[in-house]
Design a protein around this nucleic acid. Sequence first.
DNA 1: TCGTTTCCATACTTCAACGTACGGGATAAA
DNA 2: TTTATCCCGTACGTTGAAGTATGGAAACGA
Lengths: 208, 208
Amino acid sequence: MSNQKSPGARGSDAVKSSLSVEAWAEAALDALATGGLDAVAVEPLARRLGVTKGSFYWHFPSREALLREALKLWERHETIDARAGVEEMTDPYERIVRLFKQANSSYKAGRLYLALAAASDDPAVGEVVKRVSANRLNYLNQCYRALGLSELDARLWSTFAYATFIGNQQVHRDTPEQFPVDEDFRAYFKLMLKTLVPRPGGPVDGEA
Amino acid sequence: MSNQKSPGARGSDAVKSSLSVEAWAEAALDALATGGLDAVAVEPLARRLGVTKGSFYWHFPSREALLREALKLWERHETIDARAGVEEMTDPYERIVRLFKQANSSYKAGRLYLALAAASDDPAVGEVVKRVSANRLNYLNQCYRALGLSELDARLWSTFAYATFIGNQQVHRDTPEQFPVDEDFRAYFKLMLKTLVPRPGGPVDGEA
DNA sequence: TCGTTTCCATACTTCAACGTACGGGATAAA
DNA sequence: TTTATCCCGTACGTTGAAGTATGGAAACGA
């Protein structure tokens, strides 16, 4: 980063400039979700925002810096928003249900994750994707442990559930016509819940 | 395409030239699996193959033609190989089990699918991905119907199972450390089979 | 009002990849 | 041996985006 300290004047609150930087980062995430990593290009983004490169290179020293900022923003969204509306659920079963509903509700967030995961070749991207993914898995794991599952069972079930919802995003994106909607989706969701979340007190499925 | 008819001489068998074209297509798929769609670039591929652009532009009129050829090759692999070793299984349960094992065995194929799916913005790529994905889903659907499930149940279960395995590839790629291996993987696989494939004669899970 | 700082536009250089033109060596037919 | 075709290398023109340099308009403090 280069020189963002006091935008309006003295130390007012450093919001206007920081908002401009964040606007670039948001635009970068938007481009990522629709066009992949190469779509995060300075000149196309500038055109999209109605400015020129001159503006960009005042806020950022390079394209890579924009990417870092966008990744930081995404990771913050992904870790803050993921916990919102879930933490306050005390019953572990209801908490997992809430998690599932939330995971299935944000289509745009799903596209973003898929786009970033596809760009994991880039080391900076891969690092953040790995951290976010590991975070989700660990949290899901804790939820399953709270259901009374053993360490191994919780790990297997959480991986199972997580893979299923990642795959749902993928199938929904790649083959939208085949993905259940409305009534069918409700039945589909119900089926997944019933299958992926062992009810407390139900059969525990050890091995064999 | 431009001009490939008789490589050695008269109409011998048109294999040497066709093999050269296929070699380019294979290289393109390799690059796709590791570096994404942008890695399918003429000059880098030529360097990788130890030749120059001069060779490429004799076999192909453009980069897009190479992409089309690579996609054609991939689709052929994906539809031929997918049926191999599965069709001869008569018992529907065993057939699904075989399908699952096969889907989990080819890591490279999984990476290729993910890379292509990530490049679905390209219309040519998106079309093929959609076709391949729909094919797999329909085949899985038939397998579940053969198990005795209703049309709706088969559609839901096949979507469920397919999403899970797509997601497994994704998780395995994005968070390899978290993915179960060896003993754990066997338990994981067993769990998925038991969960995703209703045994014939078992509980059918209608609704509610 | 005057000068400074903020933010952006314009013009330029660099670079990598696409595509084209052309030439040359090798091989097989005559 | 001559000739034509196959296959590929070299050199060139073009495009799009990265990054740099510089100027200028507007807002703000003094």
